[in-house]
Amino acid sequence: MRPANRLLLWLLLAPAVLWLGLLIVLPHLEILMLSLRQRVAPHEYAFSLQQYATFFDEPLYWHTFARTALISLLATLLTLLLAFPVAWHIAKVARGRSKALMLALLLLPFWASEMVRTLGWVILLRGSGVIPQWLFHLGLTAEPVELLYNDASILLGLVYSSLLFMLIPLVNALETLDDSLVEAAYDLGGSRVNILRQIILSHAAPGIAAGSVMVFMLTLGNYLTPVLLGGKNSMWFTEQIYTQFITRFNWEQGAAFALLLLVLSTLMVWVGLKLTGQGFGETLRRT
């Protein structure tokens, strides 16, 4: 490669390299270093694993951690179950204008910020809100019930905010499925369940993996939805990180938590892909 060309290549790569270096690699190195030190005296720090020891010693922390992972997993599963029939309808049943309209309707809520959409759920679900009042006036409940601030409302919010990210890869995956494959399987004696499992799901598997990875990571790192819909007792791990950094001003502890969350999400995505036999590269290509 001529020197001039090499210079041009680096210039073109510069934004990406700067982005990666300054916004992703450097902060993470900083967080890693923060998490591995302990304040021994004012303005005096020493290497220590104390922050990680605290995480394992204090049940509240790792309970929150496990709970966050489990609810995220559940939210991913629910999102997949809800999104699949919708994706099927958009990819295979809807034609022409109605298809375009449906895709537009999916994107429409994203014109409002996530904060506003989540507050919308607060308005619907809080004790003096729309749904509890209806239930009360219809005589279904003796008094207006508080539907907010429980696990179900967190789950609801998480699924709602994740649907689009599951739908797009699913629609893409299903659109590439040749209808005649489904017909051929049907013609050869396949039942609906078998065709779904052996033909449709196995064709859509990379799309399912891509959507699930995306939704799981977004859910695990979500802060706004659990706090707004779960209230003080939401026990979401990102909240713990926030508390350490902002409320307690214990940056060392917060950094350790942040790294643990990173390791957890990476590990769970890896295990998930291994279990479903999906390649990492192929999945990334689909997202």
Binding site: D178, S180, L181, E183, A184, A185, Y186, D187, L188, G189, G190, S191, Q198, I199, S202, H203
Partner: peptide, 21 residues
């Protein structure tokens, strides 16, 4: 009688072999 119960099988225009198998 649905296609999966008919004693007739079809060769599709583009064959429709299952690429995942």
């Amino acid at each position: 009688v649905p296609p999966n119960r008919r004693p007739a099988n079809m060769i599709f225009q583009h064959l429709a072999l299952f690429p995942m198998m």
